[in-house]
Nucleic acid binder design. Structure first.
Lengths: 189, 189
DNA sequence: ACATAGAAAGGACATTTGTCCCAACTCAAT
DNA sequence: ATTGAGTTGGGACAAATGTCCTTTCTATGT
């Protein structure tokens, strides 16, 4: 539920600490601040060092759908920069977060000249496709009850970390349905 | 709905036709034949030259969920080879298809030594994430009726190309619900 | 201390979607 | 021509989920 990418984080940390890589900056965001805005130009990628952010898409009917919760090591903005299109989602800090930031140009250069970095990004993109595929197949094929049990299995403390509204938006259901299902599942209390 | 990747196809075609690239083979599949099997080892990537295939995941409860329909230039197997894990989905030919095939080792080598190929794969992966994100947000946030109208808009002939059961599995709904909604939408007749 | 906004909880009812049927039709194999 | 498997279409009902609304609780600023 909260995605992480330790090997990418470790590598970026190493690059940053080595001091030879001037392209990498550090920045901080407070809860509710946005790292990226849907439909706007993306000027740099961010790699989360600490904290949790949500990646969500606002639909034409006003509903928000949360694509993913990102934790340590997850990267945002790379898809847009690689394919040169406007930002697909909003990225918003849930907790206070610290990020490593790399401008679009520097990111593309790093991809070209650093084979290890290149491969880490290939892996990060593949991992995103992988977990999206599995998650959405599960969502579409199972009841809310089963989806909640699955969440609890791989992240037992999710109810204390993420707001109810966000969980509902992540599952693509209404808050009312979430509450109803939770109270049916006495398991959670 | 049927994804294609013309720039990748063009490039592979060029490599193949040049005759210098021995790693690329051609192969043919008939309808119902499978290119890749869920949970099995993936030994090579395939890039579709002609025809349509479906990419679907069989859930623990027996339901199939179609991730995507692939057409010309789409690549399959790359995610598993890059991240070295078993096959996420089944890939099955719907029409007769012809593919360019590259073994896992050759694919990884090509990624390393051919910068253009490398960038085309980065773009292909990004595109997959992009359309998955948009599609699933739309599915979760809209009624079946709206989803069907959207399908018809970007692929007017879908009802004659894809079976009803496959359309239902793509939308994550039952055949019954699909039929009901279609007959409400006289638009389609 | 008070007002206010947002999160959480849930009742009552409407709508959407699924389940379980059965029937008609097509197409290929015998 | 006849069987049988697969596809399509739809009736009747059950279950799941959404909509609308009210209440309570908590936190925060004035």
């Amino acid at each position: 539920m909260i995605r992480t990418n330790k090997e990418l984080l470790d590598y970026i940390k190493k690059l940053y600490d080595s001091g030879t890589e001037k392209a990498i900056l550090k920045q901080e965001f407070l809860p509710l601040q946005k790292l990226l805005l849907q439909d706007k130009r993306v000027s740099s990628v961010c790699i989360l060092q600490t904290g949790i952010a949500k990646c969500y898409l606002t639909e034409d009917n006003g509903k928000d759908f949360i694509e993913e919760f990102f934790g340590e090591g997850e990267i945002v903005g790379e898809i847009e920069i690689i394919n040169n299109h406007p930002c697909v989602c909003n990225i918003e800090a849930i907790t206070k977060i610290e990020v490593y930031k790399i401008s679009a140009d520097d990111f593309l250069q790093l991809l070209e000249r650093d084979k290890i970095f290149n491969h880490l990004i290939l892996r990060a993109l593949s991992a995103k496709i992988h977990y999206k595929a599995i998650r959405h197949a599960y969502h579409q094929s199972h009841l809310i009850e089963e989806n909640l049990q699955r969440l609890q299995k791989d992240f037992p403390d999710f109810l204390n970390t993420i707001s109810k509204q966000d969980i509902a938006n992540y599952l693509g259901i209404t808050l009312r349905s979430l509450n109803r299902t939770l109270s049916d599942l006495k398991v959670f209390y």
